[in-house]
Amino acid sequence: MAKAKTRVKVPKSVKKGEVFEAKALIKHKMETGQRKDRKTGEKVPRFIINKFTAEYNGKQVFASDWHPAIAANPFISFHAKASESGTMVFKWTDDKGKTVEASAKVNVA
């Protein structure tokens, strides 16, 4: 998954204690394990991202477990609260245990 591409967004600036929205996209086929290869007729093995987490300044603020019903090129939006400026680290983990990280800074005014 080293080549996986991501896009993440948080507000540049929030007020102290304000709840803000974070958005994250990643390019991934999310193979369900149900699909058959058109040419060979054989089932394509399952290969999905099964975990997505977000840490703010090293502390987990959101986590999720994904099953094959999550659509290809997964999008997720969630919320967090910040009492100080810091960095949100987004982390995706696939079926092979490989991880991809992306980060974004939040300025607490």
Binding site: R7, L25, K27
Partner: peptide, 15 residues
């Protein structure tokens, strides 16, 4: 999905 550049998955292809 289209109008928000952080929801539009095709923006990854733009990148």
């Amino acid at each position: 999905i289209q109008v928000d550049d952080f929801e539009n998955p095709a923006m990854i292809w733009v990148d």
